[in-house]
Amino acid sequence: MPRCRRGYVHVVNNDFTMWEMYAIGGSGNPTINSQGNRYTAPSNPYAKEVTKRLDTAEEKWRAWNWRSEGDIMVNGAFFVASGEGVEAKYEKAYSVEPKSATFIDQLTMHAWCPRCQEQQPGQVEYCKWW
């Protein structure tokens, strides 16, 4: 799961499942832009939130630029946005144009961990190396 300290993270076209506490975390005023992802919350009712701001009071992290655009939330998952959106200096930093989150199955169907010989393509979330 991505965690950003300061800096900028562009989370695009991923399939997040089976997180234990959060799917995206950050500290130190990072900018996080989530686009075209699918977040499937675990059954634990206390772990439905996608986002987690670490070691910072709410009055400070409310100014951090975290946004979700075109993401699909499943099983009660929710994203807590903050700030005013992506800062202009980061708009130019996009490395990839996001696809619609409705294509997640096709985009991740061959994703797997090459270190884990037991894995079958498409089952990354169960990999013991993560």
Rank of each mutant, 00 (worst) to 15 (best):
I72H: 03
G36W: 02
E49T: 11
M73G: 00
D71H: 00
Y90S: 07
M109R: 14
V50H: 00
A57H: 11
W61G: 02
G70V: 04
N37M: 10
E84D: 14
A88K: 13
F78E: 10
W112N: 03
G36H: 00
D71M: 03
E87F: 06
E69A: 11
Y46T: 08
Y94K: 08
N33R: 04
A101H: 02
V80D: 06
W66H: 03
A57G: 14
N75L: 10
S34N: 05
E69L: 09
N33Y: 02
Y94R: 07
Q35R: 15
N29F: 05
G85A: 10
M73Q: 05
G36A: 03
K99L: 13
S43G: 09
P98L: 09
K89L: 14
L54A: 13
T51N: 06
E91Q: 15
M109L: 08
I72F: 02
S100Y: 11
N75F: 09
N33W: 02
E59S: 12
A111H: 02
F79T: 04
V80Y: 02
A81Q: 11
K99F: 13
V74N: 13
P42D: 09
A77K: 03
W61K: 01
G70L: 04
R67N: 15
T102M: 12
L54I: 14
Y90D: 06
L107H: 03
V96N: 08
Y94V: 06
S100P: 12
T102G: 09
N29K: 07
A41C: 11
F103C: 09
E91G: 11
A41E: 02
G70D: 04
G85Q: 04
D71G: 04
A81H: 05
W66L: 08
E87W: 06
A101F: 03
W66R: 01
P45D: 15
R62M: 15
N37K: 05
V50T: 04
S82I: 04
L54W: 07
N44G: 10
S43M: 10
E87M: 11
R38S: 04
V50Q: 00
D105W: 10
E84I: 12
E84L: 13
N37E: 11
I104Q: 01
E84T: 15
C113Q: 00
E97P: 05
N65I: 09
E69P: 01
A63E: 15
Y90A: 06
H110T: 09
A81N: 12
G85R: 01
T108R: 00
C113G: 01
E69N: 14
N44M: 10
N29W: 03
E59F: 09
S68I: 01
A47T: 06
W64E: 01
M109N: 11
S95Q: 15
N37Y: 03
S82T: 08
G70E: 03
T31S: 05
A47M: 07
N29R: 06
D55W: 12
I104L: 11
P45N: 14
A63F: 14
T51F: 03
S100V: 10
S34C: 14
W66Q: 01
G36T: 00
K60Y: 11
S95R: 13
R38C: 05
L54T: 09
E49S: 15
A101C: 10
A81E: 14
C113W: 01
